[in-house]
Computed example of a mutant assay.
Amino acid sequence: MKTYRIEKPKIVIIGGGTGLPVILKALRNESADITAIVTVADDGGSSGSLREMIKVAPPGDLRNVLVSLSDMPKLYEDLFQYRFKKEDEFLADHSVGNLIIAALSEMRGSTYEAIQILSKIMHVEGHVYPVSEEPLTLHAKFKDGTLLSGESKIAKARKPIDHVFVTNSENNELPKASRKVVNAIEEADMVILGPGSLYTSILPNLMIGEIGEAICRTAAEVIYVCNIMTQKGETEHFSDAEHIQVIHNHLGQEFVNTVIVNDQEVPSEYLNASDDADKLDQVTHDQVGLEEEGCSIISTDLIQLRDGGVYHDGEKVVDEIFKLLKVKRS
Rank of each mutant, 00 (worst) to 15 (best):
I208Y: 08
E210Q: 15
Q245W: 07
G252A: 04
I244W: 02
N249S: 14
I223S: 05
P195E: 09
R217M: 01
E213R: 06
P195L: 01
Y199I: 10
G209I: 01
N227V: 09
N205K: 10
T235H: 08
N249A: 08
Y199M: 13
E242T: 07
V222Q: 02
H237Y: 06
K232F: 12
L198E: 08
S201Y: 12
Y199L: 10
G209N: 14
R217D: 11
P204W: 10
I192E: 11
I228E: 12
G209V: 11
T230S: 00
D240W: 10
K232W: 10
S201G: 14
C216Y: 01
M229V: 14
I215V: 15
E236I: 08
E242C: 00
L203P: 00
G212F: 09
K232T: 11
T218W: 12
I202N: 08
A219H: 15
N249K: 14
I244C: 01
T200W: 08
Y224S: 05
K232R: 15
S197D: 13
H250N: 03
T235W: 09
I228A: 10
A214V: 07
M207H: 03
N249P: 02
P195Y: 03
I208W: 07
L203I: 09
F238A: 02
T218E: 00
A219T: 12
L251H: 03
K232Q: 13
I228H: 06
T200Q: 07
P195D: 03
N205Q: 04
L251M: 09
M229I: 14
A241H: 13
T218R: 04
Y199W: 15
I228G: 12
N227E: 14
I228S: 14
I223W: 07
T235G: 05
Y199H: 13
I215K: 07
H243E: 11
G233K: 11
G212W: 08
I223T: 02
V222D: 04
C216G: 13
E221S: 15
E213F: 03
A219Y: 05
S239H: 03
I223N: 07
A220M: 06
H248E: 04
E221F: 00
H237N: 14
P204G: 12
I215S: 01
M229C: 12
D240A: 14
L203V: 04
E213K: 05
L251R: 07
E236C: 00
Y199K: 00
S197T: 13
I244V: 15
E221Y: 03
V225S: 03
H243I: 04
I208K: 02
L206A: 06
